[in-house]
Design a protein around this nucleic acid. Sequence first.
DNA 1: CTGAAAGCGCTTACAG
DNA 2: CTGAAAGCGCTTACAG
Lengths: 349, 349
Amino acid sequence: MVVEKWSRPGGVVHRTTIRDVAAKADVSVTTASRALNGTGRMSEETRSRVERVARELDYRPNYMARGLVQQRSFTLGLLTDDTYGRFTLPVAAGLSSAMTDKGVSVFLSAGEHEAHRLELNLRAMEEKRIDGLVISGKRIDRGLPIDVSSLGMPVVYVYSLCPEDAVGFVPDDINAARTAVQHLIGLGRRKIAHIAGRPSFEASHLRETGWRMALEENGLTPCGEALYSNWTEAHGYEAAFHLIATAGERPDAIFCSNDQIARGVIDAFVQMGIKVPDDIAIVGFDNWEVFAKATRPPLTTMDMELTGLGKSAGLALLDMIEGKPIEVGVRKTPCHLVVRESCGAGKPE
Amino acid sequence: MVVEKWSRPGGVVHRTTIRDVAAKADVSVTTASRALNGTGRMSEETRSRVERVARELDYRPNYMARGLVQQRSFTLGLLTDDTYGRFTLPVAAGLSSAMTDKGVSVFLSAGEHEAHRLELNLRAMEEKRIDGLVISGKRIDRGLPIDVSSLGMPVVYVYSLCPEDAVGFVPDDINAARTAVQHLIGLGRRKIAHIAGRPSFEASHLRETGWRMALEENGLTPCGEALYSNWTEAHGYEAAFHLIATAGERPDAIFCSNDQIARGVIDAFVQMGIKVPDDIAIVGFDNWEVFAKATRPPLTTMDMELTGLGKSAGLALLDMIEGKPIEVGVRKTPCHLVVRESCGAGKPE
DNA sequence: CTGAAAGCGCTTACAG
DNA sequence: CTGAAAGCGCTTACAG
């Protein structure tokens, strides 16, 4: 039973301060500060000497002190109600990674918070004097139940509903869907059906729109109506049976509004003895690998580039923090097609 | 094309400081500070007056200033290499939520970092003067490629390999597996097989151990050997066929080492015309709802309580930061069974 | 019960 | 090219 105490015996550790490096480099604190920050003019000799000493002493500037005088914390907040992680963690990883490169850190506050707890979390971030806030969520047509308009700091929305005069980033669903359907058309498919997600999600309708656009651009007509229901395998499964049972022409391709639906469709076809992609090609949406790689055959699908989305949002927020003017509105960022085997175009991975 | 500038026109906004509240409450800054922090003795009248003024002025203490003098940032770091999100986001959500209640915030650094970038991220956290660090990952038998021993601050490991003399938190895989198998036994099943995960994962072996223990405790013998392979549906699917094709007694229940495997097993049984749970009961592991709720029937499975794990780790870290002695070693935290329908015990949800 | 003063570790006019 | 000094917004001995 080993027990450990963590406070240093004999009081606090002495961490190297800028005084220490100044003293050892035989310059004033002023000069040390300037040397380390690359500001001011000074002899190259002096600067490199200070830098060397700092390295020798393993000096880490104290950002609390710096922040106090510069009125900046070099810190961001990320607020999300997604605890499930499918969308938020990639966004958060992209954000935090890009921010690290700029010397800023990000506070995470994740939870299915009701308004009150959200206030609490936001308040904690204000007390930490975050320089800016990014708000994220699990769908692009819902926001967090919190008013942020009088926050007095820049805010950016990612994968979330974005107020009128704010700046937001969401995947370009319409064009992503177009790309997916164009891929099918490029492979010679002509009778392309669409199985959509929940009708209450804006993303469902945007993806349907993209499907229709691609068809129209190529002089094709929709193969039946879009089939709306849940974002689930069960929906895909049932819709697939419906599509086949229904009189009229049988589709030679199906664009599915997410990977789970696509998975259900493929399962149904296995059961019906319909071959994918030979008889019918399938393309999904999300590139959720745990589904997309598990279907037989592996699924061709759209990737929303969530990591890049987080990065872009962070960079924009940094610009705002630095006072650069920025155009409000939501940016729709491009998605890319991941070709696997469900359309007959890919090579096995 | 609306363009917005974020820096306040006419210079910096004046944020309310403790001076402002002291002045308006007609006390010294000293007294204001003590009133707000609940320290020192003073008339109730004074204290409540200060508090009221603070509220009126919407005063938010500046934690950078406080941190500077208290040599504490009320801030933690969370380092993980999981960008996938399955395990880390629930842990992070539990951690950040519990920490908010204690007035501490958590920096997230997520990325599949090679050692060098990891150093960078850690360094950034050191410069922000985090009070402690939690290290997490995507499996309990791997650590991050980074040396943290000379960090000079408390560290806690969650869902990650934990060094000898450190403190760590992982789910109690053995007992979780025991519980799962006991559930099967309690339902009258006697011939219980086990489909395991990847043999290179410690979790696979721990869960096998739990399976054997529960059997032994009930005077039962294993129904065949544990079948090891990948953590995938494909593995479950194939293993199920193998189990049925193999001569010898047919199992009346299968304990699967994760939900994906269980899903594959159930799919195989559908195809073979074997009824779940009537002919064979299935229990999974992870409670990954996107799988566990999508199987037909919905899957009974073990939940690792990742959110609670994050919370426990954070609380322990706080104790360490406050200098309380703490026993080193890894704590195995209990998991709980989520009963759905794949064992014949649940009611439909 | 209350306050004046020092100090946490930096940056940045200001002066030389 | 370099430095002494003020100050960011707090907390906390120390003194009364």
